[in-house]
Design a binder for these strands. Structure first.
Lengths: 327, 327
DNA sequence: ATGAAAGCGCTAACAA
DNA sequence: TTGTTAGCGCTTTCAT
C-alpha cells in the first residue's frame, strides 16, 4: 500500500505538492499536477482516512442511532442521509436494539472522535447520560427532549393525537381505543394525555382495556384484534401509531369478519407505502423531513460551534392528516 | 480535551506508562497504575480513536452494506452484529439504497482503512468492481458469487425453490405461480430454473403471467392479488420469496374472498415474526445464521491473512421448510 | 518497571 | 509555486 511519501518520490515532488493535488489546492503548476495525478492513478493510491481524520480533528461523518430497522426509523434515516451526503458528510449507522450498552457505545464514538455529531432517532439511556456527551459534539434527538443541552426535531404528539381523535369524533365515534409502542416513552405520555383530554371533553368513559401497548409490528396488530374479539364491548374506532400495526389490524379484522370502517374505523400514523394500498386514513408526520431537519440542526450547531458558543435548537415539524377510507 | 501527554504530565509519568495502563499492560507498578487511572477518570480522558487506528493499522470495525432496511436484511444484520461484538468488533452500517455510488462509497471505506472488512448483504455493483477491492481487506457477500476473489455465505436458492415447489405439488397443485424480488439477480435466475424444471417434470404448462417480479413489500402482495383477480385462469398456489409480500397477498386475498389454502395455497420465504401469526408455511433460510457465518468467514480470512495468503471461502447454509397451514 | 524516541500517514504554516 | 518541517495523538521498540 503506497503512502503519500511514495507518491511524492515516484512523482519527483514533495509530499506537500501531493497533498495539494489531493485537496485541489490552487497553487500547483499544471505540469506537476498532471505528473502527480498520474502516479496516484497508476498506484491506485488513496489517502489513509485515519491520518486525515487525526490531523484534521474531524471525520465529516455523522453517527445515527436507530433502535431497530423499523420503517419508521428508515423514513427518518433516509432524510438524514440525503442531507448528509448533500453536505459532504458520511453517515455511520448504529443499531442499538434498545440496548443501553449499544447506545452508549455510539455515544462513545463521539468522544473518541470517530464521528462529528450524533442523531438519536430514539433513546433508551437517560437524558442525563446523553446530555453528558454533549460536550464532545452536537447531539440531536428526533423526539422531544426537555433538557437544554440537547437539540431536538420532533412531532408534537399531543397535537397529532388530538387531531386523530377529533377526526374520529367528528365521524360520530365515542368508543375509541388506541395502540402505542413503548408504554413509557415521552410520546406515549403525551398521547395518553391527548386521549383522556378528548374523552373528558366528550364525557365519554375511559376503558383501559382499549389501550394497547407494545405494538410496533404487523403481528402486534393481529394480536390486538384477537384480543378485541374476546371483549364484551369493543371500541368502534382505533387510533394506531404505526401503519404496519394498522395493516395487521386490518388483516385480522377482515379475517374476523369486521368491515372497515363500518365496524371498525382506523386512523393510522406515518403514511408508509402500504398505507396508500390499504386506503388507510393516517397522520403523516413527515418523517423524512424530520430526518432532514435533524441533520440541518446538527450542521448549524457545528458551524456555530466554530465561532460562538452554539446554543441548542428545538424544532417542531408539522404533521398532516391524510384522509382515505378507513374512517 | 486532554490528550495522553496531558495525562502523563498530570500523573507525573511518561506517556508510555499511560499507554500501558490504557492497554492493561502487565509491567506497571500498582502505585503508578492507580495514579494514572485516577487522572484519567478525573479528566474524563478517552484515547483518540483516529490516532489509535492510524498507528495500529486497523479499526476493529467491520462494514456492512444493506440496500434497504427490509426485515430480510435486518435478520442477517442481527447475526452479523452478534458475532461482531462477540469478537470485539464494531459494526458500521451502510445503506446503499441500491445506488451504485453509495455502494462504492462503502467499498471505499475499505481502501481508506476505516473498516477492516466488508460484508455485502446485497449488491448492485458488478462482481468485477467488488472483487477489485478485495486487496484492501476481506469481502464477504451474503449471496452466492461465482468469482474466486470473493467469499460468500448463501442459501442454495435452486434447492430451496425445488423444496417449495415439491411441497406444493405433493399437495396436488400444478397451477403454480411465484413472486420474486429483483428480476435479474442471480437468485432469481436460479429460482426460474427450479420453477421450470419442476414444471417440466410435471408436464405442466408454464404461464408467464403467473410470474410476478419486483415484489419485496407488503404493498406488492396486494398488487399481485389485484392482478390475479383479473386473470381468466388463476394459479391455485403461489411461491412467494418474502413473507411480507406473502402477508400482503393474504390480506388482499381475504378481501377478495379467496380462502387460504383452499382457493390459494401459499409457501413463503424467510420465516419472519409475522409468518407465525399468519400461520404461513414458509422456507426458513436461517438468515441470522447467514449473518453469523458471514462474520466468521471475515474473521477467519483476517486471521489467515496475517500468516498465509488467505484464500476465499464459499459456505452454503441449509434451509428448512416450516409447515404451517397456508398449504 | 519505566522512559525516550521513532514513526503511523497526513496537513499546513513557514520559508524560500 | 514549491519544499521543509513541525506536529495531530498514539503505540511500541529499545535502552536503562
Amino acid at each position: 500500500m503506497a503512502n503519500i511519501k511514495d507518491i511524492a518520490m515516484l512523482a519527483g515532488v514533495s509530499v506537500s505538492t501531493v497533498s495539494r493535488v489531493l485537496s485541489g489546492h490552487p497553487y500547483v503548476s499544471e505540469e506537476k499536477r498532471r505528473r502527480v495525478q498520474q502516479v496516484i492513478d497508476q498506484q491506485g493510491y488513496t489517502p489513509n482516512a485515519n491520518a486525515v481524520h487525526l490531523i484534521k480533528g474531524q471525520t465529516k461523518t455523522i453517527g445515527v442511532i436507530v433502535p431497530s430497522s423499523h420503517s419508521y426509523f428508515h423514513a427518518i434515516l433516509s432524510g438524514i442521509m440525503d442531507e448528509a451526503s448533500e453536505a459532504g458528510y458520511g453517515t455511520l449507522l448504529y443499531q442499538s436494539r434498545y440496548d443501553r450498552n449499544e447506545e452508549e457505545q455510539a455515544l462513545h464514538l463521539l468522544r473518541t472522535k470517530q464521528i462529528d455529531g450524533l442523531i438519536l432517532c430514539s433513546r433508551s439511556l437517560s437524558v442525563e447520560k446523553i446530555a453528558s456527551y454533549g460536550t464532545y459534539g452536537p447531539i440531536v434527538t428526533c423526539e422531544y427532549i426537555e433538557d437544554e443541552r440537547i437539540s431536538s426535531v420532533y412531532t408534537d404528539h399531543y397535537d397529532a393525537f388530538i387531531a386523530g381523535m377529533k377526526h374520529l369524533t367528528e365521524h360520530g365515534h365515542t368508543d375509541i381505543g388506541y395502540c402505542i409502542g413503548r408504554a413509557h416513552s415521552t410520546s406515549s405520555q403525551q398521547r395518553y394525555k391527548a386521549y383522556t383530554d378528548v374523552l373528558a371533553e366528550l364525557d365519554a368513559p375511559l376503558n383501559p382495556e382499549w389501550i394497547f401497548e407494545d405494538s410496533t409490528e404487523m403481528k402486534d396488530g393481529i394480536r390486538i384484534v384477537e384480543r378485541m374479539m374476546n371483549m364484551k364491548k369493543r371500541p368502534t374506532a382505533l387510533l394506531i401509531t404505526g401503519d404496519e400495526v394498522a395493516a395487521g389490524v386490518i388483516l385480522q379484522a377482515q379475517a374476523a369478519g369486521l368491515r372497515i370502517p363500518e365496524d371498525l374505523a382506523i386512523v393510522g400514523f406515518d403514511n408508509l407505502l402500504i398505507s396508500e394500498a390499504l386506503k388507510l386514513t393516517t397522520i403523516d408526520q413527515h418523517l423524512k423531513r424530520i430526518g432532514q431537519e435533524a441533520f440541518h440542526v446538527f450542521h448549524e450547531m457545528r458551524k456555530a460551534g466554530q465561532t460562538s458558543t452554539g446554543g441548542t435548537i428545538k424544532r417542531s415539524i408539522p404533521f398532516e392528516l391524510v384522509k382515505r377510507s378507513s374512517v
